[in-house]
Design a protein around this nucleic acid. Structure first.
Lengths: 204, 204
DNA sequence: GTCTATAGAATGATAGAC
DNA sequence: GTCTATCATTCTATAGAC
């Protein structure tokens, strides 16, 4: 009898792929892109190195998927806060920056890998794409802020790019350890973002 | 008699190497890292592909050298303007941002390659290093501005990171073409940088 | 019986130790 | 400079799904 893939098999394969991506994400968060060898990732996911190639055509393809999933989550969370977070546009901006920063500091290794760590060019290309998405989200809330008269006239696209670049850069380098300094960093980042957008001194 | 390198030979080799790096820089500016094959770069420098490896152990090593030289020039120029440009710290900051932006827009392809284009991880690592240098330069001028009472109290390191990230990100994406829009971009960038640092409305 | 997914070993390239 | 370890990827044989 001829072989045909059943739903059960499909599910098992999909689950294995999911697990592979999830485990690979953890490995990358811990040891970075450079340390995340196919062997190490496969071991973490409980499969052989060869089996990885049943799911991805290359290590780079797996890396891209890891990047997309993790970054996609962040874009989604940020988008929700900026759009539906409640409050006026400036409050939403401040809150969005805070949430983004806190999440990055909670998973520092992953944040570094996603934002700045040297990576395969394929991941680099994906980074550009996701930065575009962050910019679109910030641009919208800045536009609303200007329309509401809460922010001075400005090119929202440029301010959005500045916010994206600034936040990424700030969260990258020291990514300070003591959780006391973390709160200070969030506060500074929040203040700075509002200054960038031209919000008057310090709302709440 | 055993072969020993004479000064004349040394000079010729150094000149060839210099020329190789310079031509490679132009190639990268035109076609990006991905398009800059060893063959193309060698042809531009008037040597065989094999000869490239007389000067660099790998394509990545050549790429790193291209990056270092070009970025080093920018760091130097920016440093000079920020430190010795004349005027108070805020004026120097504004001027530095303008100069940096104008130079980037004049050599758009190169700027993109240096700032954001997907590249070999070795280049990515170098990018982190040079961003650190930009930050150090900005941090110093912000510190002076705060000390002079021209800027509000702030963590200069964080503001410097924000400026570095913001400027890089803004100069990356559309990098608008019409030279009219270019002037507008410079003006927006300047205003935004000053807002980031908390400078009062618009000095000159 | 036929096809697939998988583990595990072979291969070729690269980098680091010595 | 040679040797070794490790890496990504491919190959091969088998166990298991149909």
């Amino acid at each position: 009898m001829a072989y045909r893939e059943t739903p059960a098999v499909r599910r098992r394969l999909d689950a294995a792929r999911d697990r592979l991506v999830a485990e690979a994400t953890d490995v990358v968060a811990e040891v970075g892109w450079a340390g995340a060898s196919v062997t190490a990732v496969a071991a973490a996911a409980g499969m052989s190195a060869g089996s990885v190639y049943q799911h991805f055509s290359s290590k780079a393809a797996l890396a891209v998927e890891v990047f997309r999933r993790a970054s996609g989550r962040e874009v989604e969370v940020l988008g929700e806060v900026l759009r539906d977070g409640g409050g006026d546009p400036v409050e939403r901006l401040a809150h969005g920056v805070e949430v983004f920063a806190r999440r990055a500091m909670e998973r520092r290794g992953l944040a570094y890998a996603l934002l700045a760590a040297p990576a395969d060019p394929a991941v680099g290309a994906e980074r550009l794409e996701y930065r575009r998405r962050y910019r679109a989200l910030f641009a919208e809330v800045v536009r609303e802020g200007v329309a509401a008269g809460l922010l001075p006239e400005q090119d929202p696209g440029i301010t959005a790019a500045a916010l994206t670049g600034a936040i990424g850069e700030i969260l990258v380098d020291p990514l300070v350890d003591p959780s006391d300094a973390a709160e200070r960093l969030v506060a500074e980042l929040r203040a700075l973002s509002l200054r960038c957008a031209g919000a008057s001194p310090a709302p709440a």
